[in-house]
Every structure is written in structure tokens, then in C-alpha cells.
Amino acid sequence: MPVRPLLPRIAAAALFASLLATGCSSGGSSEAKSENKDMNDNASKVSAQAKCADLLPDEASAAPALSAFVAKVRKFSACVHENGFPEYPDPDPTSGQVDATVNQAEKYHTPDFVVAVKKCSPA
């Protein structure tokens, strides 16, 4: 089971919620969608993405936020190493994603790890 940073999941949920709130969807009522369209229909996805493309950040504006995120995850990982978990995985240098094997993940379901996380997390 991978151990992943919470921030990307929160950002994805916020983006999804903002797209729903602004009406960016494949169109039509939910009843019509369920009757007339397969929700996994690729054409519907492409259409929805095209309608909302102007709401997505371009790569240049997203890069500083991603760099800052990766730096925070690196700092967190280093702190966890220093606080009793030297085997804690380092984040991917590009995405900031932290992957742990199932065997490693079991080590992180302990009270000691919770203490380390609280100590290493930003206030």
C-alpha cells in the first residue's frame, strides 16, 4: 500500500469541486446522463475537458507550486528519517510522490510514526 502525500489528493478534490461548481461537465441532467450516456464514455470526457480547459493552470504557472510542494515533501522525509525512521522512502524528485511497499507501510501504522509525523508536519 503506497504512502502518498495528502496535498495532491486535496488539490485534486478541490479542482474537481470547482469544476462541478462552475458547471463544467459533459452537460445535461444527471437523469439524462444515466439514461443516454455511459459515464466512462471517452467522447464525454474529451468534451468535458475541452469545456473546462481554460480553468486549468498552464504548465508554467503550475511548475513553481509543484517545486514548492516537492521541497516540502523532501523536508518532511528528511525529518522523518531523523526521528527514528531512516528507511522512510524519499520522495520522487519530480512529483513528490512517496511510495512504500506493503512491508514498509506496516512500519508506519505505529504510535511512534504518528509522533514523528506530527513533529515533522508544518504547523
Rank of each mutant, 00 (worst) to 15 (best):
M1K: 07
M1S: 06
P2F: 04
R4K: 12
L6Q: 08
L6N: 11
L7I: 13
R9S: 14
I10V: 15
A12W: 07
A12G: 10
A12L: 13
A14N: 11
L15C: 06
L15V: 09
F16L: 11
F16R: 12
S18V: 07
S18A: 15
L19M: 15
L19K: 00
L20H: 10
L20E: 14
A21Q: 08
A21W: 02
A21D: 08
T22F: 11
G23K: 04
C24I: 15
C24D: 07
S25A: 05
G27Q: 06
S29Y: 09
E31I: 14
A32M: 10
A32D: 13
A32S: 12
A32F: 10
S34T: 13
N36L: 15
N36E: 14
K37S: 13
K37G: 06
D38W: 08
M39R: 11
N40F: 15
S44W: 09
S44N: 11
S47H: 07
S47T: 13
A50E: 10
A50S: 07
K51G: 02
A53E: 13
L55S: 12
L56V: 12
P57S: 02
P57W: 01
D58A: 09
S61W: 00
A62L: 06
A62Q: 02
A63W: 04
P64W: 03
A65D: 11
S67Y: 01
A68H: 01
F69E: 01
V70S: 01
K72H: 03
V73Q: 07
V73K: 00
R74H: 06
S77R: 05
A78N: 09
V80F: 00
N83P: 02
G84F: 03
F85N: 01
F85A: 04
F85S: 02
F85Q: 00
F85W: 00
P89T: 07
D90K: 12
D90N: 11
P93D: 13
S95K: 06
S95M: 04
G96V: 00
D99T: 14
D99C: 05
A100V: 01
T101N: 00
T101M: 02
T101H: 05
N103T: 05
Q104E: 08
A105F: 05
K107G: 02
Y108K: 01
Y108Q: 04
Y108W: 05
H109N: 03
T110Q: 04
T110G: 02
D112R: 07
V114R: 04
V114M: 09
V115S: 10
V115G: 01
V115W: 05
A116L: 06
K118M: 07
K119R: 15
K119A: 08
S121N: 09
S121I: 07
P122M: 12
A123N: 13
A123C: 08
A123P: 09
